[in-house]
């Protein structure tokens, strides 16, 4: 094959929406293919070239022993291992099962639970060293491109660590929390989405996971002030990043 840096995309427990964002790069996809060799991308091409890979993107959370084995192989084959999407970075939506009896979860999801052996849902970083993380449900494709460019240049990518509020204010949106009294998670959620939901008058539900040094306890008190029930508040904070240490303060019962 070519001498271009080799990229692999590995899938674990996920909806494949983050992989799809690679294909949603359509306007620049050909340019991207001029810069890297996408060597392992089962969703898009049947031919898979073997590792080692320069960048391994990991989508999905780790939910069983087989996953752990495959993940360790992916780690061994990838110079840079990048967790992409809320499942890989924080355990994802399916991590709500971590607070339910596993038997109940199995029976509600699978027709024949005997064939499954799920464990709790954990982020990739629980099992292997992760070099970079692009959070989001799905990931933001512009952040993905920014990451690939930076990796090719060998510089730190400009991945926004701060709150959604910053991008929301830059877009001069009406604040849903202050002006409309809606429970928006923006103040504690990492930006990088250009405040996608608040820009469409929908409160942030937190798919990008925690922002740096966020104060979940304080936002929880604000939600109490808005009149939310304790159990609703817990669900808000458990939706995407329940396992995060700071978010556990918001997601306590």
């Amino acid at each position: 094959m070519s001498g271009l840096p080799k990229v692999a995309i590995f899938k674990f427990a996920s909806c494949s929406g983050c992989q799809l964002e690679f294909l949603n790069l359509e306007p620049v996809l050909l340019d991207l293919l001029g810069m890297v060799d996408i060597a392992h991308f089962v969703m898009a091409r049947s031919a898979v070239s073997p590792g080692p890979y320069d960048i391994g993107f990991v989508e999905g959370s780790i939910v069983n022993a087989e996953d752990v084995g495959r993940l360790k192989e992916a780690r061994a084959e990838s110079k840079l291992l990048v967790a992409i999407g809320a499942c890989a970075t924080h355990g994802g939506l399916q991590a709500i099962s971590n607070w339910l009896p596993m038997r109940e979860v199995e029976n509600s999801v699978y027709p024949n639970p005997v064939q499954t052996h799920p464990l709790k849902s954990f982020p990739v970083s629980e099992y292997v060293k992760v070099d970079a993380a692009l959070s989001g449900c799905p990931i933001n494709k512009y952040e993905l491109v920014e990451f690939i460019k930076s990796a090719l240049l060998g510089v730190t990518p400009r991945i926004r660590p701060h709150s959604v509020c910053v991008e929301c204010k830059l877009a001069e949106n009406v604040c849903l929390l202050v002006s409309e009294g809606k429970p928006c998670l923006g103040p504690v959620i990492r930006a990088g989405c250009s405040a996608l939901c608040p820009s469409r008058a929908t409160p942030c539900t937190g798919c990008h996971g925690p922002s740096s040094d966020c104060n979940v306890e304080s936002l929880r008190n604000t939600f109490v002030g808005l009149g939310l029930h304790q159990s609703d508040i817990t669900r808000h904070f458990r939706k995407y990043a329940a396992l995060d240490a700071e978010f556990q303060k918001g997601g306590r019962t």
Binding site: H162, S163, C165, V166, K169, P187, C214, E217, S218
Partner: peptide
């Protein structure tokens, strides 16, 4: 204790 550090 209260500041969200959100930058608003």
């Amino acid at each position: 204790r209260r500041c969200l550090g959100c930058g608003t």
